[in-house]
Design a protein around this nucleic acid. Structure first.
Lengths: 113, 113
DNA sequence: TTGATACTTAAGTGAATGCTTCAGTATCAG
DNA sequence: CTGATACTGAAGCATTCACTTAAGTATCAA
């Protein structure tokens, strides 16, 4: 099992490619087979399979094979840590901006006195 | 100016590296100079400057030089699209799960009648 | 003016990425 | 049994990445 930091590495890396994001986008609308994922992409099936491996390694996508078709599904649990990481950094920064704004306002009032 | 997809590429790519995430984390607590960013990292200053270039290219970080020190700040506006992209995919998938659950519940009720 | 500080830039290197082609192996449909 | 379908896996290749070293250039402090 990957550690937290390595998971974030893997998830952000997986999402840094437009083809992989398109695959995730399609999977967010429902499960799909490998060829269904490949269909809208200007790329060989082999290429798609390699992107799929990256997505699976990151935990974003799971798949299971029944007969000759592999069906892929999104795992929203893998999205959450990355989403949360972003939210935390953004809100930390915004809170800091707020405090700075309040400080500047207070200073301004003092000047006016 | 980068297009939306290219921005997402750049932001997710920038965040896929632990050193760069650590820099963003530090900057979320307040502005910092290049050497302050470098200090906690086991890497030459040159390496840090290159990571900084990636962060600036993604729009996540802005910087300006005064005298001989460059001060870097986080840009929360650049975080938002990535955060939103993740939220949208996750919620789309979760809504789908809910609908599926409701359908299965309904089917089960029919079975029991 | 001299030395320390704070970057900056270029060049090099090994590893990882994002593809491709080609040659398979199962599985299903008739 | 025989194609067609749905992948699978290995090899190759150009590009990008994540560093390093080395040699700068400004700026500030005394």
């Amino acid at each position: 099992m990957l550690q937290y930091q390595e998971k974030l590495d893997a998830v952000f890396h997986a999402l840094a490619d437009p083809a992989r994001r398109q695959m995730v986008e399609q999977l967010s609308r429902g499960p799909a087979s490998v060829s269904q994922l490949a269909e809208p992409l200007a790329m060989t099936l082999s290429g798609v399979v390699q992107h799929l491996a990256v997505l699976e390694a990151s935990g974003l996508v799971r798949s299971q094979k029944v007969g000759r078709t592999r069906t892929c599904t999104l795992d929203h649990n893998a999205i959450h840590p990355a989403e949360q990481w972003l939210t935390q950094r953004r809100t930390a920064w915004e809170k800091r901006l707020d405090r700075l704004g309040a400080y500047l306002d207070a200073t301004k009032e003092e000047d006016e006195q």
